[in-house]
């Protein structure tokens, strides 16, 4: 087992997590992240368990909410905590390239 991630691997996970990393940090993470990954690698040695999974120790199934509206925020309150806003809108640097989110 190698004891370091490659620089590219660190850059890849930093991109996934949207964290900028300096050259110095990359070196540090090459070792530290690899150590954590070596830790979790040990689950592959575990045997004897069944296929059922537990997402969370839920006590009940979901109880659905009635479709009745409740209190909403004043738009002024919505923008108050935002670092940047224009009128009632929250503002971000111009999003170029894509018109719509990938997800929806």
């Amino acid at each position: 087992m190698k004891d370091k991630l490659t620089k590219e691997e660190v850059l890849h996970v930093a991109d996934l997590a949207r964290i900028e990393v300096t050259e110095e940090e990359i070196e540090k993470y090459q070792v530290q992240l690899k150590q954590l990954l070596n830790d979790v690698e040990k689950v592959n040695d575990v045997v004897g368990y069944d296929d059922e999974i537990m997402v969370a120790p839920w006590d009940d199934n979901t109880t659905l909410r009635e479709d009745v509206s409740g209190e909403m925020l004043d738009p002024k309150k919505v923008v108050e905590n935002a670092p940047n806003h224009t009128g009632n809108y929250i503002a971000v640097p111009v999003v170029i390239g894509e018109n719509e989110s990938e997800g929806a």
Binding site: H12, V13, A14, L16, Y29, L36, L37, V40
Partner: peptide, 8 residues
């Protein structure tokens, strides 16, 4: 560290 490893 934790969120990078978690993302991975």
């Amino acid at each position: 560290r934790r969120i990078m490893v978690g993302s991975y």
